[in-house]
Design a protein around this nucleic acid. Structure first.
Lengths: 213, 213
DNA sequence: GCGTTTACAATGCGATCGCATCGTAACGGT
DNA sequence: ACCGTTACGATGCGATCGCATTGTAAACGC
């Protein structure tokens, strides 16, 4: 009636809404990583993104909507990077290699992924007190865990793991270990190599083919 | 010169400074647990504590000082509860039992400790962007880890663990596992019992006396 | 008893916040 | 060519913030 676009998606006049929103979101990430979520204001975001504050308001109806979008965007980016990292693995993909790669992806090795991890922490803390922010986490965790336990089941089927292994339990512990290594790492208690060693140590014990005497 | 108190500590006129500060701090905890750290204002704290805002200002020179005091206070409380829980253990204290108890202490079983965990998360997120808040964590982690690895060394000496066990590595993994279980638990992905099962599962594997064939 | 210090309450202030409003320039459809 | 919609920029507003200031009553040292 009012407007009849050819594409059902959006068909804006000339600018790409999604791109603009993500450009602003990038500024949000930088500010959160640098000063925390509580410190960011719409004016700061506009300044960081190099745009006017009116523009920010134009693309986000409220600050809350902006932050929600940012959280979704971060979740998608993490998931995408996750999948890409797995897909990039060379041919002989043992389950152990896949799991190791996945767990290493969580551990921030460079400044960029470190910043992402900090932002994730900020969002997590927010999700604890604002259920609206917990939605992304609510779906991310079961999917993560499902992927891990599926890998473990594959490993059991392929003989990499003994048949009495509990895939769900091991998946929980693998995930918890990885997440638990993140905190002290971000604070600076040890370096990424130490976290990697911890992961390998755990995988060593899980996948021990025989030994122990 | 100006004032010559008999006690080196404080000797205020008639009120207990420390007590008042901790009373205010309790209100801070309640507000952080309920609405997050970014949402609390001096007026809110005063109202929650049932005092005037001037009183809050009287006992804390600034909001930042108040939050720092609160973080210290929380750290001490956690450490105290930790020690008490260990001390309350019955006579035959195997290392495994001690570790299990310690790890369970991190997992919030009731609403009160859950609130504490949420507050800790909030402080942690803050510490990532404000180094001043990282001071407490900076000393807490090595002390925690040291206690755990010391227990592990005792276990090795006592024959509970094989001599080739790496106490430092196992301590890191035990701590990481426990911390990593906390996040999903707080979000509500599983219940305390599941977290306890994960801990026991890990301890089972670590302390397996023989088996595996 | 008197002055100083302490313990609080009340108020004021400048800054900043999110958001609503308004103005305007450019494009698209007819 | 016109008109409506979109895409912004600029400004204003009420609320709220942390903090400084001021006032006052009570306790202590002398």
């Amino acid at each position: 009636m009012h407007v009849h676009c050819k594409k059902g998606e959006g068909m804006p006049k000339r600018v790409d809404h999604q791109a603009r929103r993500e450009q602003i979101t990038e500024a949000v990430f930088r500010l959160i990583a640098a000063h925390g979520m509580e410190a960011i204001s719409l004016r700061d975001v506009a300044a960081e993104a190099g745009v006017s504050m009116g523009l920010v308001q134009h693309y986000f109806r409220s600050k809350d909507e902006m932050l929600h979008f940012a959280m979704d965007s971060l979740g998608q980016r993490v998931a995408r990077r996750f999948a890409a990292r797995i897909a990039r693995l060379p041919a002989p993909r043992t389950v152990r290699t896949v799991l190791r790669t996945a767990m290493f992806e969580v551990i921030p090795m460079d400044e960029e992924s470190r910043a992402d991890a900090c932002v994730s922490m900020a969002f997590f803390a927010r999700a604890l007190v604002e259920p609206g922010f917990a939605a992304v986490l609510r779906e991310a965790y079961p999917s993560m865990l499902g992927a891990v336990s599926e890998q473990l089941r594959r490993a059991i089927g392929g003989g990499e793991l003994p048949p009495e292994t509990d895939p769900e339990q091991e998946a929980i512990n693998l995930y918890a270990l990885t997440q638990g290594l993140l905190g002290p790492l971000l604070i600076g208690h040890y370096d990424p190599a130490a976290a990697a060693a911890a992961i390998d140590h755990h995988l060593d014990r899980l996948f021990r083919t025989s030994s122990t005497g």
